[in-house]
């Protein structure tokens, strides 16, 4: 069967958002994203303008998946971070377990600053996600009532 669902509770989401908000300031970043390694956006903070955050998340995950496989081909276990430097905008992606922390920054910041500050923030993010994972598993086992209440009619109504 497919993997078990990952459930993020509201209080965990708010804590993640506040870590991202702080990181965004500390890194002098334009925007900071937290993305699942399968490409699902989890949370973000900063200026997104008209950026398509769903597509961005999917591409970031594909990018990391590809570079991680390249790492294995040359005998590295993993590349813990991926950097793309542009003329004005740059992207720094670091792997946190099953998630990716993505910092988008411009000339107002520097790669070294982003690296140092991201590293510190990533521990907090990892702790919250670990907690969410444990809660998620317990929630599924102990209280599956919400999803078990979904009826065939509910599902059919999506396609009407």
């Amino acid at each position: 069967m497919a993997d078990t669902p990952f459930i993020l509770q509201e209080h965990q989401f708010e804590r993640l958002k506040s870590v991202l908000a702080r990181l965004c300031v500390e890194c002098a970043a334009r925007v900071v994203f937290l993305i699942d390694r399968d490409g699902q956006p989890i949370a973000f903070h900063g200026e997104i303008g008209d950026m398509d955050t769903t597509s961005f998340s999917s591409l970031a995950a594909g990018n990391v998946a590809a570079t991680s496989s390249m790492a294995k081909l040359i005998g590295e276990d993993v590349f813990p971070c991926v950097v793309h430097e542009g003329e004005h905008e740059s992207i720094y992606i670091s792997i946190i377990g099953r998630s990716l922390l993505v910092v988008v920054f411009d000339e107002r910041s520097t790669l070294s600053l982003v690296k140092i500050r991201s590293k510190r923030g990533s521990f907090e993010v990892a702790n919250i996600l670990d907690e969410a994972k444990t809660d998620s598993d317990n929630f599924r086992v102990n209280q599956n009532s919400f999803f078990s209440e979904i009826t065939d009619e509910d599902i059919d109504s999506l396609f009407s």
């Binding site: 078990t4 669902p5 993020l8 509770q9 509201e10 989401f13 708010e14 699942d36 989890i42």
Partner: peptide, 15 residues
Amino acid sequence: MTFINYASREINCKI
């Protein structure tokens, strides 16, 4: 892996 966000009340699935 289905991702369920209670804060934004979203279920995300991959096909």
